[in-house]
Design a protein around this nucleic acid. Structure first.
Lengths: 352, 352
DNA sequence: CCTTCATATGGGAGCGGTCCCACACTCTAG
DNA sequence: CTAGAGTGTGGGACCGCTCCCATATGAAGG
């Protein structure tokens, strides 16, 4: 009803209106128990009547905290917004943060100067800590922030795992599991479209692929490995190369579902049927995976859980800055769909 | 080289190290001209040696500004991240903001309490102003923020156009243009899949569709109008309804490209050829539009330009708070591709 | 009835900047 | 040689809040 056009209301005015001192008013607003019910009521009434909102700068200056954390994403804006990974991660973060009344601030440095800007932003005390995701290998930002004493949690395996808090999914096991599944389905010439090689997740999924082949006793063949870049078009391009180099491949493990879309498209163009001629397994279990033609088998990562763990770790780091770095490793689950159905049993087979 | 583990460096210390007063050091850091070259050099050396970063809270408290603005997006997180609109908008905003050393803070309220939280956040002085986009009709947030004297710019047409700064694209003209193009291609039974009716853009595109029909002298037919929700699946669903209600339609104007993907899918399922049987025109000119089968004609909005204009308007509003509200209207362009090719000329036609 | 203790409250010192104002000093002009 | 203007600098108030510390008040205990 009564709003006070533009005039910023201060705690002083609220205290005056409530007939108490600034200190008492402050206690009410910070939920300090040592206030009489009368005073509390009076302050609350005055605050809501005046439309009082505590000034962030004043509070931050006095407390040394900002009640906000940064999510720093090293990803071109277009990819950031294209990738379903982020909404899921943010949802997980939100689960933990909103309950503690913490703000999440998204920063997406696009260049080296941007990266410096992030450092200044964080060092200026805008936030109490930072979450770093899709960090390029051996980026210096974590080290620089750490040396300023900023609480940090990294998403994915950092270059120096012992120095930082981090949360990762077991990408190696996830990829190996996918390969084992393809082998179990009777596939023998299993190719892979990798992710970006400068991202640990990309490296680990490739390693898992290789380990999976080894476990199955299948030979390694570099011509069955083609680099992608986590984009749809990159996936299509890689698949076309693979088909030229190894026309007789019968399965592909793709390091992301987005790339798998491109892969399916390239296979369709080449007249290969999925899964009859070529089985495909993706990674991420994107919501669209089940809706593709054919429905795409995919390695599901517990991304929301990852967000929750990252937020928890950071909260701990903010509150006890001297605790040694911790790590959390989460496991994946393979969602089996039609794109990786087993090869039809040879009619010469034994059973049946 | 020398970093100072965790210790926050203050201006006082920099001044001391440079052998000047805090006031002089402050002048150097705020690029005040009234400093001797000697003092300037000394302060700059000291600051970089100590790794000094000005404390945001202190500065904000003293200046009353935060050098940040909020982009408030009323959109479920999943949509926000799926929609190519936002990276483009953000790029446009960035063009203007980075040159003025302003931070962009993304807020995506998902619920009514979230919306209150945004109000508090902005009112607390975290940001100097706010950009509001995809605001549901008659949402109260703009009014509430305005009554607190917060500089505001709205993306899209607000409910009370005279009260706020806003930037909009001429959705009516864009949609009418698309319809005119379909008419020129020989189509007569032109349907539409609308956007969300609670968003001005959705309303305006529908109105443009209706005006387009009227201009062409074609009858209005409510059965040719089906509501979508700006999602792919919503588009597919709407198209299926249209095909049941009006099997003989020969063109569809779809209020977004994402929905158009669903529309194309539904048409393919129904065995309709595009553009032979049904012409399709989308809206947004999503990067993927050209890559669809068939390549999709689409109304292109100058989204980056919209971002730039919004940022400029807000900067002006921040610096001169008493200026009356301004509006900027941007025009669209129709990208013609194969999905709306003209009907084959009847062989009984006159020419050739 | 006077201490002792718990509890509610106010005074006031910072937090780290900015910026107004006064001051010293140099330079020019009368 | 001195008044006046111009220039660089330091002192210190202030921004709005939190929180330590001292004080007032009332209840409990000897």
């Amino acid at each position: 009803m009564k709003d006070l056009h533009g005039t910023k209301v201060t705690l002083e005015e609220v205290a005056q209106a409530a007939g108490v001192s600034r200190a008492t008013a402050s206690r009410v607003l910070t939920s300090d128990p040592r206030v009489s019910p009368d005073a509390r009521r009076a302050v609350e009434r005055a605050a809501s009547k005046l439309g009082y909102v505590p000034n962030q700068a004043g509070r931050a200056l006095a407390t040394g905290r900002s009640d906000a954390i940064a999510l720093v994403v090293f990803e071109p804006t277009t990819l950031l917004f294209g990738d379903p990974f982020f909404p899921r991660l943010i949802r997980g973060l939100g689960d933990v943060l909103t309950s503690r009344d913490m703000q999440l601030i998204l920063l997406a440095p696009q260049s080296a100067p941007d990266s410096d800007r992030v450092e200044r932003y964080v060092a200026a005390g805008h936030v109490d800590g930072a979450l770093l995701v899709s960090l390029p290998t051996s980026h210096t930002l974590p080290g620089r922030l750490a040396s300023r004493g900023i609480p940090l949690v990294i998403g994915g395996r950092p270059t120096e795992p012992d120095r930082f808090n981090y949360v990762d999914v077991d990408n190696v096991a996830g990829a190996a599991h996918a390969v084992a599944h393809l082998v179990a389905g009777g596939r023998r010439a299993i190719a892979t479209v990798t992710g970006r090689k400068d991202v640990p997740a990309g490296q680990d999924r490739l390693r898992g692929y290789q380990e999976g082949l080894k476990t199955a006793g299948l030979p390694a063949d570099d011509a069955l490995i083609e680099a992608g870049d986590f984009t749809r078009d990159g996936g299509a391009r890689a698949m076309r190369f693979l088909l030229i180099k190894r026309p007789r491949l019968d399965a592909v493990f793709v390091a992301s579902d987005l790339m798998a879309v491109g892969v399916l498209q390239a296979l369709a163009e080449a007249g290969r049927r999925v899964p009859e001629d070529v089985a495909v397994v993706g990674y991420d279990d994107d919501p669209m995976a089940a809706g593709l033609q054919p429905p795409l088998s995919s390695v599901r990562q517990p991304i929301e859980e990852m967000g929750r763990e990252m937020a928890r770790l950071l909260m701990d780091a903010v509150h006890s800055p001297d605790r040694p770095p911790r790590k959390v490793l989460l496991t994946t689950r393979l969602e089996v769909r039609f794109s990786s159905a087993p090869v039809a049993p040879k009619l010469t087979g034994e059973a049946l």
